[in-house]
Design a binder for these strands. Structure first.
Lengths: 136, 136
DNA sequence: TTACATGCAAAGGATTTGCCTCTGA
DNA sequence: TCAGAGGCAAATCCTTTGCATGTAA
């Protein structure tokens, strides 16, 4: 399991405010890919003193601190997930928009090989498969 | 080689206007991944009677018609490329923003296998590798 | 105490749209 | 002819920012 975000913030010497604590807790409990508006809604349910602007600033801070990964599923909004969750890629159901997570070691290895072949050290990647459910 | 976009438009019964002809020509000649502003600039160089709004509308039309693929490299702007160009993925140089195209049959096959394993028919995918050049 | 965080509202950048005019077929 | 296309400017959506105030350390 990933360490609580609060601990990681503390370790990095980030100033701990009520807002950040609340947002960190929301993120710790999330097992999906919320966008900023969704995070704001969840955080506000716990503490109404959290503005949208703060969520934006916090999410950017967390991303810069390496705590969050920013995802883009092509709907115009940024989505976020804990960077210490086990690595995975996404398969998006083109009919429902549902997001399925998966991991495949072969793909990971292959990507590394390709980058190296092109003269690059792989620092990250985004892989989204788009598909439709096979009816049986 | 891919068929000229004009021909594909015609085949689909899309109304051919001067603006669409010009934008189609610009796209036929592009071998990079221009964003809307860039397309507008290139189109305007040929015919000043093309507004930004029209480029947006055209690009959306072409995407819906299956003529263009929309790409997102995480810089907030949508980028486009001819969907009939030979399929490839992208490696993005994290230092310079340069985009390198590559194809790897193994990765294509693997993706298909993964989707099927999850109960999906693969309809498309987005793969971007992020890396830094290996200094020698 | 004091540098940094937050709220609020205004500003920005990308993209879309209403409305009226123009044009391709 | 006339439904659809384009120009222009206003509107929208997501995100960032300036400024005055609040607060963690």
């Amino acid at each position: 399991m990933a360490k609580p975000i609060m601990q990681r913030l503390q370790a990095q010497g980030v100033r701990l405010t009520d807002q950040r604590r609340t947002i960190a807790a929301v993120l710790d409990e999330a097992d999906d890919h919320p966008d900023v508006e969704e995070l704001h809604a969840r955080a506000n349910a716990r503490d109404a003193r959290i503005s949208l602007a703060t969520v934006y600033r916090t999410v950017k801070l967390f991303e810069e601190t390496g705590i969050l990964d920013r995802l883009e599923f092509g709907d115009g909004r940024a989505r976020f997930e804990d960077s210490q969750r086990a690595h995975h890629d996404h398969l998006i159901d083109m009919d429902t928009g549902e997001v399925i997570e998966f991991v495949d070691p072969d793909i990971e290895a292959l990507q590394d090989k390709i980058a190296r072949r092109l003269g690059y050290r792989l620092e990250g990647h985004r892989l989204e498969l788009l598909g439709r459910k096979i009816k049986d």
